[in-house]
Design a protein around this nucleic acid. Structure first.
Lengths: 188, 188
DNA sequence: TTAATAATAAACACATTGTTCGGTATAATT
DNA sequence: AATTATACCGAACAATGTGTTTATTATTAA
């Protein structure tokens, strides 16, 4: 990829993330982005079809780091992870570290789109590991309902944590999560 | 209120609700609404500041029916409700009956705003009745976190139900809800 | 019947989107 | 270093949507 392309691409991403921490998604205009990124209008549109696609591509880049296989977040996780982490704790630690901007995006208003993408990833993770908690499912409720519940509760737990200033440690939040969904810790 | 005002107001509400079942909230324009409602542009804006305010006022009217005190949804509920209903079951039955349009609004895309308003109401309800489930709270997790979780889970349960075609009976859904949040039925 | 006021269409300024185009700057290639 | 390719630029553009204003007409309440 041309060096100029990389420059403008990251400039746009950075501008977009910075704007997201001050403005609601809906209120951010393309004019805002290109002004902060110092990029021409035509250039913006040669990179991204619309603002929504910009978000989509940003998510792809962010999620690649956090949800990647190398980060031991799949079935074989127990064998590759050194610490006594669970999958959830691992993810929460990632967010706390803030090397990504997921916390920023999760607390941003008018961001259904981001939440949708995020939920897809969390759900994939849970599905890939469903053997670990399917036996924790209360009797007589549908499997799909249970997995959906785990996904939603995990996300809402993180959102609550972020909106309250991320005071608690990742370990504590993971404990909260396990308690309210009523499953035992998997790795001790 | 002038008869003409009532006419246009309900015409706009009806048009809006009909549009919401075919289009996403973001994609509905004021032009769409006034065309379907057969109302002049200036008339629309003399009734509602913006499209968002239209939604807000619609919610006020809808919620008045569903979350009202007369519908025995507060503290004294046990004494006024004839059936062996719980608060949650009562609400779910209301939605199933579809005398309101809450199901439509809950399944509509790009409708963070509605969800926000809805959540406020559900949370008020839960807060008013918190004595009934605060003793069900798992130990060592914050009260506010627990109540927030109940609220979110209840809403997500309803959404799952609606998105899956409302196949299950209100009683079954209420059972599901109680099971995943891990609280016992209150009224037998 | 009259006085008040709600509804109307049409025109308006304004903001935002997404496209096009000719010229300029920068990168990759030889 | 010279050449070629292409990414960037600004400016202008049409298209769409928002919210306001105005002068006129129709309906209501009294």
């Amino acid at each position: 990829m041309d060096r100029r392309q990389k420059r403008t691409r990251t400039a746009i991403f950075n501008a977009f993330i910075n704007l997201l921490s001050t403005k609601n998604y809906n209120n951010i205009t393309v004019a805002d982005v290109i002004e902060l990124a110092n990029v021409g209008r035509a250039t913006f549109y040669s990179h991204f079809e619309t603002k929504d696609y910009l978000l989509k591509e940003l998510c792809n880049e962010l999620f690649e780091h956090v949800f990647s296989v190398e980060n031991c977040l799949v079935d074989a996780y127990i064998f590759t992870c050194k610490e006594k982490d669970t999958m959830f704790l691992h993810l929460i630690k990632h967010i706390k570290k803030n090397d990504n901007n997921i916390a920023k995006l999760l607390s941003c208003k008018n961001n259904e789109l981001f939440l949708e993408y995020f939920k897809v990833e969390v759900k994939k993770l849970i599905l890939a590991n469903k053997n670990n908690f399917s036996n924790e499912k209360p009797k007589f409720i549908p499997e799909e309902f249970w997995l959906n519940h785990l996904t939603n509760t995990f996300i809402e737990t993180i959102k609550w944590w972020i909106d309250n200033g991320m005071i608690e440690s990742p370990e504590t939040i993971t404990e909260y999560f396990y308690k309210i969904v009523g499953i035992k810790k998997q790795v001790q």
